[in-house]
Amino acid sequence: MREENLIGLIAVLAPLSLASVGGATAIYAPLQHEAVELRQWVTPQEFLDYFAIMRFMPGPSSLLGALIGWKLEGVWGALVATLSLYIPSSLVCFAAARTWHRFRGRPWHTALERGLLPVAAGLVCAGVLSLFQLSGGSLKVGAVIVGVAAALTLSKKLHPTGLLLAGAVIFEMAWLAGY
């Protein structure tokens, strides 16, 4: 039974690793289909709970798979799930990064590098707006966003942990005050 579950985790998660183009959101639907409906590793409610936990956890939200592994086989299940989720895509990324690095200085590489820069800038800007909308888009959220960005611009020494804590404290005070 034990090996069967571990092999099942690899069989489900390793292909999803390669399918997760654009991040974890791409694999939620197929993962839910496999883990809840087909294999019944977790109940629908558990899957939703795991999804909620991952929003409040550090690290990539595809570690949702590690929670399913934990439910099935404890620490070993979580470990096998994590490795299955990350090794395949990481090998692809490494191969791409190495190829990219090897051709530094070639004219086409310089052109591609220059070409990708504004694309990345546009993506990051769009990401800020999407996350702001996802967070509910309240004045409170907007104020913290602008405040943190301004603080980072003004000071080079600020540590991110301090800023995240400051965000928590401000929201905590707002919550106590009834906002």
Partner: peptide
Amino acid sequence: AAMAGVAAAAIGMLLK
């Protein structure tokens, strides 16, 4: 509430 505050500060970092 605290986690929502952390998330908002994280978006601020992304803005920078």
